[in-house]
Design a protein around this nucleic acid. Structure first.
Lengths: 253, 253
DNA sequence: TGAAATATCCTCATTACTGAGGATAGAAAT
DNA sequence: ATTTCTATCCTCAGTAATGAGGATATTTCA
């Protein structure tokens, strides 16, 4: 398989997006836009499977009606004859690979949901991390188009693992409060190691929160000079000479 | 730019390698092998810059003599007229872009080291994470070949960011000092979000490392006022008013 | 090629921080 | 009961950082 100039540009552009460090939703939106162009498709949707609720959440969509997708989330996803099968696949899969076209077009799911928005030919890719579905790519073409070819599936399959990896990274970064908690525990450790008093720890945390000496004084209702005294003691105990060193000291041991 | 069948296969294969989760050295070896094929080159070397020792370490090489590379690590890297310049670039750069061929071929570095192993035309790519060089790709062609073309540089530049991202992930997995890596990735995110330039990211990282403005100036060999300029721009882009706020901004999002 | 972005350098006034020297009152430990 | 620790307050000299105003050369990109 060779790639045309336009395809090469799009593939490289997607690679760049996957490496940039976007948040998971922005990542899916950007990749979706470019995949539509790359695969000559018109409709894109992406969800993240929520294991606790057993449902698809965090919708990202392009060219699809919100009402229809709302209906999918509320109703159709629970009587969807194709997505659970597609979801089990670990590679890009056309709807037509798992259900004959004739039968598919007679389903309620197709007639009342997909066709409602003009979706006729679909291919899905599901990203997995350690057995957990962490996001998907659902690409659809309209009635006037044809089904996806092997070539197009190959392209999607090439991009798939890179997308999975990027989603994994994005979700790891989004795992809430991680940094904050780490900072607090790191501070606690450093403080205990250096025998900081309770008050000194408090001041220390305030410094790390980005407050100026005067702000700290106001916050704790003590005088500026008292704050300075505390900070001087903290520096002495930690063997540092300034607040920026405080951070590197606390974070990097 | 279009890609031939062979090139497409190699690009997709590299993408797969970059997403697989290999250790950093294995990652570089695999990518190196495929890049040689992709760029019609014969020699590959890759190092990771060690900031504490100010030297290139963790060699991975293909088709190059161990003796010669040993000499590079011991001696030539410290009197290398081209690599420090290439290293400062944030994109794939040919040796011929930074030094005229005629002058280059008269250097001791070329005659006693490179030509010794048959290396004539080279292109390098340096991966950066938050101002830190976390790995490189050095690709060389022999005497009987020609210099690398723009097209080949474009290909390498497309793969570059994905390689950087993969290296970042690999090193995060390998690093035991979790905090440091978290800080680096957090910085990377904040920097991307605020559209910081490469140089600004570097300065930003130095500030976070606890260096004073004067120390930063010395470290990068620029004037104190230039550092101040960069920092001023960083504050403007991030909407903050001081370095302690920078800390809380980067750490706590 | 021309515009925009980037990296580099500069001054000057002001503010914030650091280091070194105190003092005092109360709590905790020996 | 005395010492040590802690929290609070103070001055003052010196250093570092900030904000606002530039300038210029190079690189990048449309």
């Amino acid at each position: 398989m060779n790639l045309t100039t336009k395809e090469t540009d799009l593939v490289f552009s997607i690679m760049a997006d996957l490496s940039y460090g976007y948040a998971s939703s922005e990542l899916r939106r950007r990749v979706g836009l470019k995949l539509l162009d790359l695969l000559d498709a018109q409709y894109f949707a992406s969800y993240v499977w929520n294991t606790t609720e057993n449902a698809f959440c965090e919708r990202v969509s392009i060219n699809m009606s919100d009402d229809n997708l709302g209906a999918y989330e509320q109703h159709f996803q629970f009587c969807d004859p194709i997505t659970p099968v597609l979801q089990r696949r670990r590679k890009a899969t056309c709807v037509s690979e798992i259900m004959p076209r004739s039968r598919f077009e007679r389903t309620e799911f197709f007639n009342d949901f997909l066709a409602n928005d003009g979706l006729h030919y679909g291919v899905n890719y599901y990203a997995y991390s350690g057995g957990t579905n962490i996001g998907d790519l659902r690409i659809w073409r309209g009635r006037n188009k044809e089904d996806f070819s092997h070539r197009e599936l190959d392209i999607l399959n090439a991009i798939g693992p890179a997308f999975t990896n990027a989603m994994r990274g994005a979700m790891a970064r989004e795992k809430t409060t991680q940094g904050k908690v780490d900072l607090v525990t790191a501070l606690e450790q450093a403080a205990n190691g250096a025998m900081l008093t309770a008050r000194e720890k408090e001041i220390c945390a305030a410094v790390l929160a980005g407050l100026s000496d005067q702000q700290i004084a106001t916050k704790y209702g003590i005088s500026f000079t008292t704050v300075r005294s505390h900070i001087k003691h903290i520096y002495g105990k930690l063997g540092i000479t300034g607040r920026t060193q405080l951070l590197s000291r606390v974070i990097m041991h």
